[in-house]
Design a protein around this nucleic acid. Structure first.
Lengths: 335, 335
DNA sequence: TTGAAAGCGCTACCAG
DNA sequence: CTGGTAGCGCTTTCAA
């Protein structure tokens, strides 16, 4: 026994396959009695729509590809879930892939999705450099980039506003009495980091802080530890430190405290990137959390819009500001 | 200008579409010169395989559906990633869906995947009750269940061994001198919880502990808080508490300490379910972490095996033991 | 080893 | 409003 086809349904309902198809899609008007007969046949036969055949004929798979960076340790779950939900609402399916390790292999990931004939793609680039080939490979398929890194201006994108982000953070530090600030874990060589350093400088200027230095360090816990040791050795000259992420901030804070530096009394420490999931009240590090959920929704909205409009207009860029989460590492002032 | 088809390739290479197809699939032997001509035509025309047409004809989409519970706050990322990788290795694509909120709606999620004609499905049930309809709906499509909850014995599954898990935890508590134990946040009414309570009792027996009580509480932070208040009010009678998850344990520990109960000096607190991502050295709560990565790989392995074998044999069940992560809430003894 | 041809199940066009 | 029908692009017999 094989699955019933639309032809079986049509026969059982005493109509043509064309009519049966129209009932399914609801595209055009079908008389009430015929429609009812078709629906009855569908349930009685246990007919199941075949999206594959439909896609081949209509040249639309009703499917969207999502490409994520590997090793994202979970903090993209909110993005996946919101993209999935938004697509679901639009009756679309989600095909998920992680971008390959190698640089050029990224294009292969896109290629696999194109072979599946996805109607569109949402890409979350692991860095600004990597995704060029991937986006080029996409060709005429609509692409939306989403995340912390956006490559170029060729596609619609949903990103974060570095300036609003640092204003939020530096403003809070300033309100708590900070006068000078340095960054740890951002390297001027990386374009995205350079922009963040620039944004920090600007925010310092606005808030009357002195931007002392940008200490380069690996953006992991050990990097924070190393930076803290350097600070202690050279003698501390700042009262606020902004780290690339929570891990760096954790390492830095821990070592500073081991060296009898009072955090946040003497030095305030904050992070630009939340990597935790604790929604608890007892947050250790003041940090900025990215609104992944809203970003995912917006990415899908842009994509659906591109399906409809045809994408003649230039690439749109939507930005969000992160949310400031106050923790024990700063003398946070809520208002 | 439209995408080139295999017919275009065949024409350009001076062969039949059949031969061109054979070169692509590598199924049967094609003479070297013809194969070379086809490959040349493919690159020169920029031909891209059409998985949709291929699927319609061959009745295999080379696609696997993954159904996850909603609101899994990120701790399933490792599962998604490992499943994705394993499928990738097998040349399969991943279609992701979150199960709907309502109970019966779960079957709709499966239905959507079946309409897409996935070759198989991996389901991570949110509880044992919910997935019955979903699995029934799958019909003859191979299904593997994976996660903390497994429904029935009708499908292959990858789960966790409650007994090995509690032995690990209770053993550690016993080695640190615990003599009596109670559970918080597990309710005897829920089958899966009942099994865990049973496993705890058994582990207590083996390790010479007295299992005092199973306090029911919501499996969230507030539940831990409520349980702690109850314990303080009624006068503490145990020296070890095992909570349903980290959140409960956190709430409980915090309130106990506020009431001047020394944790872990006076009472040790542990959790059965890790929901964090901190790999840091400074873990607050002793907990059990599930090996999601290995579980995902195993799930895919079972599924691929089902594709090949035909699944005549009975349902296989693979179980893993969680990893014990020692934290500041117990007087952990590493060995 | 190769080619011709018959569909896979559906949608969309074109008549009626 | 409805039915007939021509494919969508590919794989897979069946002959040659």
């Amino acid at each position: 026994m094989t699955q019933p086809t639309l032809a079986d349904v049509a026969t059982a309902a005493g109509v043509s396959v064309a009519t049966a198809s129209r009932v399914l899609s609801g595209a055009r008007f079908v008389s009430d009695d015929k429609a009812k007969a078709v629906r009855k046949a569908i349930t009685s036969l246990g007919y199941r729509h075949n999206a594959v055949a439909s896609a081949l004929r209509s040249q639309r798979t009703e499917t969207v590809g999502l490409i994520l960076p590997r090793y994202s340790t979970g903090f993209l779950s909110a993005l996946i879930e919101s993209v999935s939900d938004a697509l679901d609402d639009a009756g679309l399916s989600l095909v998920l892939r992680y971008s390959s390790d190698g640089e050029a292999h990224d294009a292969d990931t896109v290629e696999a999705l194109l072979a599946r004939r996805v109607d569109g793609m949402i890409i979350c680039p692991p860095s600004e450099e990597v995704s060029r080939d991937a986006i080029a490979a996409a060709g005429r398929v609509p692409v939306v980039q989403v995340g912390r890194f956006i490559f170029g201006n060729s596609t619609d994108s949903v990103g974060l506003d570095d300036h609003r982000a640092t204003d939020l953070l530096v403003g809070s530090l300033a309100a708590s009495g900070a006068r000078s600030l340095l960054s740890v874990g951002l390297s001027a060589d990386v374009p995205a980091d350079a922009r963040r350093i620039g944004a920090l400088r600007a925010s310092c200027a606005v808030n009357g802080l002195t931007f002392v230095d940008a200490i380069e360090a690996d953006a992991v816990l050990a990097g924070g530890v190393a930076a803290a040791n350097r600070l202690v050795d050279t003698g501390l000259e700042v009262d606020a430190v902004v780290c690339a992420n929570d891990d760096v901030a954790h390492g830095l804070t821990t070592v500073l405290r081991l060296n009898s530096v009072d955090v946040p009394g003497q030095v305030q420490v904050a992070s630009l990137l939340d990597v935790s999931f604790d929604d608890g009240d007892s947050r250790a590090i003041t940090t900025l959390r990215h609104p992944w959920e809203a970003m995912g929704q917006e990415a899908v909205r842009l994509l659906l819009d591109a399906f409809g409009g045809g994408g003649t207009a230039g690439a749109r860029r939507v930005t969000f500001a992160p949310q400031l989460l106050l923790g024990a590492s700063t003398r946070g002032v809520t208002d």
